[in-house]
Simulated scan of single mutants.
Amino acid sequence: MNYPAEQQFAPSPAPAPAFVGQGTAVEQSRAVAEVQAAVVVARQFPRNEALAVQKMRTGFAQHTLAVRSFFRFSRGKSNVSGETIQFAKELARCWTNIHYGVHELRRDDANGESEMQAWAWDLETNERASTTFIVPHSRWTKTDGSTRLEDPRDVYENNSNNGARRLREMIFSVLPDWFREQAKTIATNTLENGQGDKPLAQRVADCIVHFEGLGVTVEQLEENRSGRKSEKWTNLDLGQLSIISESIRRGEITIDEEFPPQRVTVTEIRQQHDEQPPSTEEHAPTGERQQWPSARQPGASS
C-alpha cells in the first residue's frame, strides 16, 4: 500500500505526558494565542524599512551604545572580536516584528549539563532560526582548568552566557546582512569620532585614569597600543580601549590576559646590579672562621 511521501518519512510522535495539570494547559493555550496574535499584528502593521534604518542610525550614533556593541578577547596569540548580544537586540528592536528567546529545555544535575534552545523568528516573512545545544555545568580557566559548578546561581549565569552567544547568531540569521553591516559601520565611526563634547587630550587623560583604577599602568596601555605613547593616541585607540574595558567588565577577559605584567629584561637586571654599591666587608668561606690576632692580654708573656 502506497502512502504519501510526507507520511512515509513523518517522525513518530513524542509520547505525551500521562497527566497535564490545569496550569500547564492554561499556559499552553496562552502561548498559542500569543503567537497567533503576534503574527496577526505583524501582518497588519508591517515594518517600514526606511524608518528602521533611521532608528538604527540614531541608536548607534550614541557613544554609550557603540561601546557596548563590540567585544574583544585574547585567544592564544591572536585576538577575537565581534558584535555583542546588545548589538543584536538593538538591531532586532529597530527592524521590528522580530521575536527571539532562550529556553532551558532540560537540566540534568546528575551529569552536570543543561539542554537549551535559542531561537529567533521574523513574524512577517515567517523565517525562523533555532539551535539546540548542551551546556556543561562547568567553567574553564587557564590556571585551574575545568571546574564543576554546584551553586545554582553559577549554573544559571553560565547557561545565560552560553545562551546569549547562540541567541546573537540566531538574530543575525533572520536579519538582512546589509542592515547589520551598516550598523557595524556606524558604531565603528562613532567609536572613532569619540565624544564630541570633550577634546582628545581630555579623553586620553580620562582613559588613563579609568584603567589606573583597574590596576593597569600607562606603560601597559602603551604596550597594548603597539608601543605608541599616550600623547600619540587617536580616536581609534580610545575606541578600542573602550571595547576592552567593556569586555573586562562583562568578564569575557581578565586584566592579566589583556595586559600581561611587564617582564624584567636581562639588561635591566645587570644595570640594577651595577648600580648597587660594592660591599666593604669580606666574608670568609662557609665552614671556615678566620681567626684574627687579638690584642695582648694583660699578664701575657712576650
Rank of each mutant, 00 (worst) to 15 (best):
Asn48Tyr: 05
Arg296His: 04
Thr147Asp: 04
Pro152Ala: 07
Phe9Thr: 13
Gln291Val: 13
Ser146Tyr: 11
Lys55Met: 13
Arg180Trp: 00
Ser12His: 06
His210Trp: 06
Asn193His: 12
Asn2Leu: 06
Thr147Val: 14
Ala295Arg: 09
Arg165Thr: 12
Ile85Lys: 00
Lys142Thr: 09
Ile208Gly: 02
Arg296Ala: 10
Ala88Leu: 01
Arg30Gln: 02
Ile85Val: 10
Gln202Trp: 01
Phe73Leu: 15
Lys89Leu: 12
Ala164Ile: 02
Met170Pro: 03
Ile255Asp: 00
Gly215Ile: 05
Arg250Asp: 06
Asp197Asn: 14
Ser146Lys: 11
Trp233Gln: 05
Val20Ile: 14
Leu238Met: 02
Gly215Ser: 09
Lys198Met: 11
Glu157Asn: 07
Asn2Ala: 13
Asn189Val: 04
Glu115Trp: 09
Arg270Leu: 15
Val39Leu: 15
Asn48Thr: 11
Gln86Asn: 15
Gly196Ala: 13
Pro17Gly: 03
Ala118Gln: 10
Arg43Phe: 10
Ala295Gly: 07
Ile186Phe: 07
Arg43Pro: 01
Glu157Ala: 05
Gly23Val: 07
Cys207Gly: 02
Phe70His: 08
Val80Gly: 02
Val209Ser: 09
Pro152His: 04
Arg72Trp: 09
Ala31Glu: 07
Ala88Trp: 02
Thr64Ile: 04
Ser230Leu: 01
Ala37Cys: 04
Gly299Val: 09
Asp197Ile: 14
Ala66Phe: 11
Arg68Asp: 15
Ile269Cys: 03
Gln272Lys: 12
Ile255Met: 04
Arg166Thr: 08
Phe19Ser: 15
Tyr156Asp: 14
Gln86Ser: 15
Pro17Phe: 02
Glu113Asp: 09
